Amino acid sequence: MKRFAHAIAVTLLLGVAGQATARHSVHAAPPQHPPHDATPPPAADPRTATTCSPEHAAMGHCTPPATPTPPAPCSPGHAAMGHCTPAPAPAGCTPEHAAMGHCAPAAAMPREPVPPVTDVDRAAAFPVLAHAGMVHAPARYTRVTLHRLEGWEDDGQHGAAWDASASTGGDIHRLWLRGGGERAGGRTTASHVELQASRAVARWWDVFAGMRHDIRPGEPRTRAALGVRGLAPYMFEVSATAYLGAGGLSAELEAEYDLRFTNRLVLQPSLELELDARNDPARGTGRGLSTAEAGLRLRYEVTRRFAPYVGVVHERAFGATARARETVGGHARETRVVAGVRIWF
């Protein structure tokens, strides 16, 4: 009896030990990967499938469902290359979000629809011009200019000088009447008048030809005139004239420049040179550079047509011309302060 009870106790102990060993092997053994050629297990029935917690997934008891990857945002650069299509702009896209590229503002719709353009609208926008009703500049115009009318006082004697011109014609061909002279000590010391015909040969440049009649000094005489005048670079007004007659060949060179301080205040430097090809005792001139006159006049244009001025003028004679002036009691050099007016109409 004792032997039979001992056998039963040993059998129970061995059964309990075997169950504990099997339970430990189930939890401790690592999961076995199926061979490559093994058939995958059948899909779980959604009706009997349970939620796979992270703990069971870590122990290999189940496989968590795949989480869908959100699509990457479509940037303007990728959209321009055709790699993706940007999402439509949400409602209420503010200018700040549009500037950062987060959205695109919707096109502003007009409050009132724009009507289509009709033939009546086109006719009103582009009317047929009537040339008879247009005002054109006159083809011929006349202008009179008193360039200088000035006076001075030197050694108790009063003097005056003038330089004027009148022209008529168009922009290409014009007819000119010019004149100038001086008075000193109550008598006229120099006086001349010219008749010229000019033609425009380039922009701002004319050539002219005509006749000049000298009244003083000496006996009156007439000479032919040929020259060119115009606007040189840097806005210099220049003129060069050659004279040919009984007294031989002579020439006059003139240059002026208007330096504007304001719209009305103008400083005008000027230079005049006279040259002779031979001595002319009857008129008191010598060969070469006979006289040079430099002036500096400051004028104020009260209107464009009326401008009083003050200035200083220095005149010098050279060579035989200087000796001829000193012989009759004149001066080879002379500086005078002048005041005058400039008028045109």
Rank of each mutant, 00 (worst) to 15 (best):
D45W: 06
V26R: 14
A79C: 12
P65Q: 13
P35L: 12
R47T: 14
V26M: 05
G60V: 00
G60L: 00
A44I: 10
A107P: 15
A49E: 13
P73T: 06
P110N: 02
A106Q: 09
A38G: 11
A106S: 15
A99F: 02
E96C: 02
P34T: 12
G77R: 15
T69M: 10
C74M: 07
H78I: 02
T39D: 06
C62E: 08
C84V: 09
H83I: 03
V128T: 10
L129K: 13
A57P: 07
T94H: 05
E150H: 06
C52D: 02
A104M: 15
V117A: 08
H102Q: 15
A106N: 03
A132N: 15
R111E: 15
H36Q: 14
H33Q: 13
V114T: 15
P73L: 03
P115Q: 09
P42M: 04
R122K: 10
V120F: 11
T94C: 09
S25D: 12
P115M: 10
H136V: 07
G133I: 10
C93E: 01
C103T: 03
A49F: 04
G60S: 03
P73N: 02
A91I: 14
P76H: 12
E112R: 09
A99M: 08
A91S: 14
V128M: 01
T50N: 09
G133P: 09
P64T: 01
R23K: 09
H147R: 09
P42W: 07
P35A: 13
D121G: 01
A99I: 09
H33E: 10
R111T: 13
T39G: 06
R23T: 15
H56E: 12
P127V: 01
L149S: 01
H83P: 06
M134G: 14
L149A: 05
E112M: 13
S75C: 03
E55T: 03
V120I: 10
T48N: 13
P127E: 10
P54Y: 05
A43T: 08
A87P: 04
S53V: 02
P40A: 13
H36E: 11
A29S: 06
P70W: 00
A87T: 15
A139V: 12
H136P: 04
T67S: 08
L129T: 14
T118M: 01
G60E: 02
T142H: 09
A139Y: 02
A124G: 05
P76Y: 07
H131Y: 10
G101E: 12
P40S: 12
S25M: 11
P73G: 02
P34H: 14
D119N: 08
T118Y: 01
C62V: 06
G151R: 01
T50W: 11
P113I: 05
A28R: 10
C74D: 07
V135N: 08
P115N: 07
A124Q: 01
L149C: 06
A106E: 09
